[in-house]
Amino acid sequence: MSEERRQHVLRAIVQDYVATSEPVGSKALLDRHRLGVSAATVRNDMAVLEEEGLITAPHTSAGRVPTDAGYRAFVDRLNEIKPMSRAERAAVQTFLAQAVDLDDVVDRTVRLMSSLTNQVAVMQYPSLNPATIRHTELVSLDGDRLMAVVILSNGRVEQRIVQVDVDLVTEARQQLLRTLRDRVNEAVAGATWSEGIRLLPAVIDRIAPEHRETAGLVIAVLADALAQQREERVALAGTAHLARSVSDFPMTIGPVLEALEEHVVLLRLLGQMSQTSSASGDSVAVRIGAENTVDGLRGASVVSSTYGADSTAGLGVLGPTRMDYPSTMAAVRAVARYVSEILDQR
């Protein structure tokens, strides 16, 4: 019973400190929460929690604040993540569904997560590795220019402009583009991007000799579009939120900002957290303070989830350890689910 009560006290301290950013004392706990015990009992419970390293006194006042270990104990004992309201879920779904392509999906996602949580949002572009080529299209623009478009199964659309030395407006040239498009789709539709790169050159041999030079230019551009693997990219939004949380970082937000500039570091972090959530069977992973392997983020918390049918890419938010974990975890989980649904439909 005493252990359960102390966990109740810890939960109350975390909730009050997150809400007020002020150290929490026994009197405040009794005033705000129905603990059903005396002030002396609360003080004794707080003393035990401090001995266990779950709370600490930032100065000589009677107030206490959670430590990284205290936040971890709080998060680990969340029986369930409070779901978003029906109105919130509908708004999220509608906003994301309006995206026109993958870049727009990613941009909307990070802006949405940042808005919902008031934290920095991070999203990894979905990996090309498991993606297949859904369709290619060739569109004449004007005179001797055309647009080559590659649509992948994960929703990504690659576009390139090709400059050729022939007039594409004539009916004969238009027929060439249609023929070339059909030959390309016959060769690579359903193939992975790496297979597509390997299969594309053979398409040139199926084109009439007098048109192979033009076909070669187009094929080279399509191959280039596939070769540029953009999975090593992350998108960010809401960095300005850190400026409103300067006092929550032990020393300065400088190391956090430097870490955010290192996209390779963020990709590695999301990958590690994805493995953690997969191993635990939980859709949301949380790293708090010193649990972060990145030095610059040891004063911050990261909440992340995977998304997509293959769950190989991650998204999440980053902010101070004084974070509303239940709401943040609910928002990240909900957004990841909707992003997965939208990409599956594309």
Rank of each mutant, 00 (worst) to 15 (best):
V37P: 04
A47H: 05
R43H: 09
D16E: 15
T20F: 03
D45I: 00
H33W: 13
M46W: 08
S26N: 07
D31Q: 14
A28N: 03
A39C: 05
A39I: 09
A19L: 13
M46R: 12
P23F: 05
R11V: 04
T41G: 01
A12Q: 06
Y17E: 04
T20M: 04
S21A: 09
K27N: 06
R34Q: 11
A40M: 12
M46N: 09
V18K: 01
E22Q: 15
L29M: 11
T20L: 02
A19F: 05
R43C: 10
A28T: 03
Q15K: 08
V42W: 01
R43L: 11
S21H: 00
S26K: 08
E22L: 10
D16L: 13
A39K: 14
R32N: 08
T20C: 01
M46D: 08
Y17N: 06
V24T: 15
V18Q: 02
D16K: 10
A12S: 07
T20E: 02
K27Y: 10
S21L: 08
T41I: 12
T41Q: 12
K27R: 12
A40L: 06
S38N: 11
D31T: 13
A12I: 00
A28Q: 09
L29C: 05
L35C: 06
R11W: 07
R11M: 13
A28Y: 03
S26Y: 08
L29S: 05
K27L: 13
A12K: 06
V14C: 15
V18N: 00
E22M: 06
G36A: 05
V18W: 02
